[in-house]
Amino acid sequence: MKEYIIEIENLVKELDEQKKKKLKIDVLMRMLNMLKDEPNHKLLSDFDELKKLLTEVIQHYNKTKIKVYRQYFHNIQEAVEKEFGYVEKGALIGRYVGIWIAMGSGIGLIMGMIIGSGIDNIGVGVALGPGFGTAIGIVIGSGIIGTSKEKEADSKGLTY
């Protein structure tokens, strides 16, 4: 992994900060640093392919190549999480926000229907319920559960 870090640094040194951000170079470097002490693993060939894709993106910077690179990078991130348990900072919060928005919207719809039928205007309840449920889902997903899961992973040294 240490050689990948050096090679990636050399590849991207000419890129401006905006391109580095779009290609998530900082995330890639943090992930490589997390993996540098891991024994050789089956992801080495994936990193070879990622490095090749990154080289192509740098040589021919266009939307199609960026999209292919980012999708491949995302696949590697999922494999790293599955194999080692390492996750990108903020990924757990985003994951739980998504889950709780969906759950909150559903619960809000049901509660809105109940409240709407209680005031003999189910339309108002159906219209307002999902909005309130979504807001509650965001609070629970990001503020309560997501943040605690993120802190837990961070304290275990599993975030990059």
Rank of each mutant, 00 (worst) to 15 (best):
residue 16 D to A: 00
residue 133 G to E: 14
residue 48 D to R: 00
residue 18 Q to E: 05
residue 4 Y to P: 01
residue 85 G to P: 03
residue 153 A to C: 15
residue 76 I to P: 03
residue 112 G to W: 01
residue 103 M to V: 07
residue 34 M to V: 07
residue 50 L to R: 01
residue 149 K to G: 08
residue 159 T to C: 14
residue 136 I to C: 07
residue 154 D to F: 15
residue 134 T to K: 00
residue 127 A to R: 00
residue 128 L to Q: 10
residue 77 Q to L: 12
residue 17 E to P: 01
residue 113 M to G: 14
residue 95 R to G: 12
residue 74 H to V: 06
residue 14 E to L: 01
residue 10 N to W: 06
residue 85 G to T: 03
residue 85 G to E: 15
residue 14 E to F: 01
residue 109 L to F: 14
residue 35 L to E: 05
residue 16 D to S: 02
residue 64 T to G: 13
residue 64 T to F: 08
residue 94 G to F: 06
residue 8 I to H: 05
residue 121 N to Y: 11
residue 70 R to G: 06
residue 108 G to L: 02
residue 52 K to D: 14
residue 100 W to I: 02
residue 77 Q to T: 02
residue 39 P to V: 09
residue 82 K to P: 05
residue 142 S to N: 08
residue 39 P to A: 09
residue 6 I to V: 12
residue 90 G to W: 03
residue 149 K to T: 12
residue 97 V to M: 07
residue 33 N to F: 12
residue 137 G to Q: 03
residue 79 A to Y: 03
residue 85 G to V: 04
residue 113 M to E: 15
residue 58 I to M: 03
residue 13 K to D: 12
residue 53 L to Y: 15
residue 107 I to Q: 04
residue 32 L to M: 03
residue 95 R to C: 13
residue 136 I to Y: 08
residue 119 I to C: 11
residue 80 V to P: 01
residue 88 E to N: 07
residue 41 H to Q: 04
residue 69 Y to M: 07
residue 143 G to M: 05
residue 80 V to R: 00
residue 10 N to A: 11
residue 98 G to K: 02
residue 83 E to D: 11
residue 96 Y to Q: 02
residue 95 R to W: 12
residue 160 Y to M: 05
residue 5 I to L: 09
residue 143 G to D: 15
residue 98 G to R: 04
residue 45 S to V: 08
residue 122 I to P: 05
residue 114 I to K: 03
residue 78 E to V: 04
residue 110 I to L: 14
residue 115 I to P: 06
residue 116 G to T: 04
residue 94 G to D: 14
residue 39 P to H: 08
residue 29 M to S: 07
residue 74 H to K: 02
residue 91 A to F: 06
residue 69 Y to L: 14
residue 57 V to I: 06
residue 117 S to F: 09
residue 112 G to D: 14
residue 147 T to K: 01
residue 86 Y to F: 15
residue 8 I to F: 11
residue 22 K to I: 13
residue 93 I to F: 10
residue 135 A to L: 13
residue 7 E to Q: 05
residue 30 R to F: 11
residue 75 N to T: 12
residue 142 S to Q: 08
residue 151 K to V: 13
residue 152 E to V: 05
